[in-house]
Computed example of a mutant assay.
Amino acid sequence: MWIPIQINENSAEPLYHQIETQLRSLIVSGQIDEGTLLPSIREFAGSLNCSVITVRRVYQDLENEGLLRTRQGTGTFVASVGAGERNEYRRIVVQEAVEVAVDKGISVQYGEDELKQLFLRILKKKYSEAEGGRKSK
């Protein structure tokens, strides 16, 4: 199975973290279904051009979170993810992104009202664009 993971070798973020974050997102968002057999550690490492140790760590971390299940002799499978877990993950991802944006605004002395206005303007624009994209399909 091919898994759409994009690695940025120029990023300061560790390789295992890039892979883990993207794989977690694919599982929690439902893009990889419950019960799906994932590639073997060796196969996945080969497709990502990284070490087996890196992929082993990703699989172990996600198994510790309850997102993966490994069955001796059969492989690693995607575990069941409840609706509550999906919603919490979505909230955390968006919250982290907003926090980064606010931190950047504060670092360049953007005022609270300026940030609110900018956020609302961008929000309106993006939802308008998304709505336009749905109508044209």
Rank of each mutant, 00 (worst) to 15 (best):
M1Q: 05
E9I: 09
N10D: 14
N10P: 02
S11T: 05
H17K: 14
H17Y: 11
H17F: 11
Q18D: 03
I19P: 03
Q22K: 09
S29Y: 10
G30H: 02
I32D: 01
S40M: 03
S40G: 12
I41N: 03
I41T: 13
F44H: 07
A45S: 06
A45E: 03
N49E: 09
V55A: 02
V58Y: 04
D61A: 13
E65C: 12
L68T: 05
R71K: 07
Q72D: 04
G75M: 02
G75E: 01
T76H: 00
T76S: 01
S80D: 06
V81Y: 02
A83Y: 08
R86N: 07
R90M: 06
V93H: 06
Q95N: 13
V100Y: 09
A101Q: 07
D103I: 12
D103V: 11
K104W: 10
K104T: 14
I106M: 01
S107M: 04
V108G: 00
Q109D: 15
Q109L: 14
Y110K: 03
E112R: 03
K116E: 01
L118T: 11
Y127E: 14
Y127M: 13
E129H: 07
E131T: 05
E131D: 10
E131G: 01
G133D: 14
G133E: 13
S136Q: 12
S136R: 13
